[in-house]
Design a protein around this nucleic acid. Structure first.
Lengths: 342, 342
DNA sequence: ACGCTTCGTCGAAGCGTTTCGACGAGGAGG
DNA sequence: CCTCCTCGTCGAAACGCTTCGACGAAGCGT
């Protein structure tokens, strides 16, 4: 394995010159640069990442804090990861996967103190999140994918849930639906202060009011059977509902199945919009789900770029970026029958 | 940030002694060990990962070679990652995500030459895979999750596809099904030499013969609509089929939808078994899919442990471990009607 | 023709560990 | 009682890079 010393000798220059060629930290004459490049090519030289890291105090690795719960990631969450990895690579950075949730604070402490990572991307952010406090105390650089309750002073990139709910409701209202159910995340998420669940709940209320229509919110487990139960409850509460908004993809599939078995035709009797859903999942359903498509990869990439910029700048001010989900009309929404009759 | 020198001074010992306490490379008296530990605790000392890596030539990081195609990972693939991360962490290792497919050979070359990673876990292995050749040339340590066409001399951990097909067919035959379709991965996968597709195709043929029953294999895109088309084709070829084996989860959902629309009752008219499927996905279907549950996390963990053992040993001999999928009977299989009539 | 920058390069001092050889103190064996 | 090990510890030399200060050679204005 060739070292920089070998390259320097071969090119007939000093070690520091080779380093400057590599890092561009100081001006180098064209002639020297070429000699050095030639020598590197001939020797198949690759800088040693560890040595570089030690000397420069930067590893060019960022950590992705993502609690791997064992139940696996949905397509939507995976997209965050994909986007982040891609963006990091383009900038010459690497991504390390760290299964660190809100509870594993000491593990994060170790990780951050080891100086192995230049910065952190925090996923699955809770409204109150130990990790955020800790990273702040340690004066680490980090960007949230999501938001805490009080994001002032933090950098975060998130989905614009408020906008997404507004757009979804507007779509249903535009089709003539006047009674709408919102199947949210589970009771536990709501109680635990999971951001998306809380924010969408509020936004839903607001949207109902704004459009002057009625509706009901029902929590649901993030499973197909949870969705079935939830839509059952919703129909008891509002027997005449014709529109449904679902927060969870799994629940959405359950809802479709339940409606079918209740001999209700989707989209004609009841229209369903799935929120924050990837195209891949939407297509699994029959008919394919009309959905608010998650800008997953874009969020991941944006967060990464913000983090990298901060690493370069040393910037540490508040930063917020909200990306909207875009409506993708497929087979589960249509003009309300009730509307047509008139 | 406290360094080892600080700890040494505080404990009144030499730097090397502190190092020996940390690494356990040489015997240390109980008294000294305690002094050192106390000093470390007081200073909140954490070893610097980069310095350690440089001096010891080991980063304690392993790379996960996983082409992130943008279409996202299924729950099944995610489980590999989860299992690997978990196993690595238990052993004090970290996992780096590297989006490197068969085509990105030079990227892998760089990665492996940089000495940032101690070893590699290779996912999405093709029957002929450039990455494998390259890693071998570079004398890197690696373990495949999957298998190449000729795995002699390699270390790999994989799902036992042959066994899985056997078990699935046996289940259907046991329920009295005598005409069975196998909906495999796509034509392209088959042509491209994708291991699981090829292996299961062969195993299916063999199983049919062994049981003395008839059947047909149909390729399918890995999407719901692909599954719909495939089951259509299969029914044209074998109008009287009562059993279906599906390789892809997405296709399985499409098949269920198509059968329902053809007014065929699942499981009574046609029974369906989905192969290599996680419980989460199986439950999305209505009725829930009878499936061969993928030992995803176990495979990831096993591969990681093998890799770590090799890093310790320097072992480099052939190693193979095949884990079976286990049958999980849910709602899509039942005794064949045809069988009952007799 | 003179001092003053600016440019391009060099040597050397780190960066924070690990690891190797050495060495004094006891204990065992003769 | 002397020799030979083993045990526990130390000092110093790497590991391969970045970065700082210095320095000669031009290039500039005057």
């Amino acid at each position: 394995m060739a070292t920089m010393t070998d390259v320097a000798r071969r090119a007939g220059v000093s070690v520091s010159t080779v380093s400057y060629v590599l890092t561009g930290t100081r001006p180098i004459s064209e002639a020297t640069r070429e000699k050095v490049h030639a020598a590197m090519a001939e020797l198949g030289y690759q800088p040693n990442a560890m040595a570089r890291g030690l000397a420069s105090r930067r590893s060019n690795i960022i950590g992705l804090l993502l609690p791997l719960t064992g139940r696996g990631l949905g397509a939507t969450e995976t997209a965050f990861v994909t986007g982040a990895t891609e963006a990091a690579r383009e900038a010459g950075y690497h991504l390390m996967l760290c299964s660190v949730g809100t509870d594993d604070a000491d593990e994060l402490q170790t990780l951050a103190t080891q100086r192995l990572l230049d910065g952190f991307l925090v996923m699955e952010v809770q409204l109150e999140d130990r990790r955020v406090e800790l990273l702040r105390e340690l004066a680490a650089q980090f960007v949230l994918i999501g938001r805490t309750a009080e994001p002032a002073g933090l950098a975060c990139v998130d989905i614009d849930f408020e906008q997404t709910v507004d757009d979804a409701v507007a779509h249903l209202v535009g089709l003539g639906h006047r009674i709408i159910a919102y199947v949210n995340h589970s009771e536990a998420s709501l109680a635990g202060g999971y951001g998306p669940a809380k924010r969408t709940a509020a936004a839903f209320e607001a949207a109902l009011e704004r459009h002057g229509i009625t509706g009901v919110m029902v929590p649901s487990e993030d499973t197909a059977s949870g969705g079935r139960r939830a839509i059952g409850t919703a129909r008891e509460l509002c027997p005449r509902l014709t529109g449904v908004l679902v927060m969870n993809e799994n629940a959405a599939l359950g809802i479709l199945a339940e409606l079918r078995e209740a001999a209700l035709d989707v989209p004609w009797d009841v229209s369903v919009v799935s929120m924050v859903t990837s195209a891949a999942v939407a297509d699994l359903a029959s008919p394919a789900l009309t959905a608010m498509t998650s800008p997953g990869a874009a969020v991941g990439a944006a967060a990464t770029r913000v983090l990298l910029r901060r690493l370069a700048d040393g910037d540490t001010s508040t930063y917020q970026e909200l990306l909207p989900c875009v409506l993708e009309v497929r087979g589960t929404t249509a003009e309300s029958r009730r509307n047509k009759k008139k």
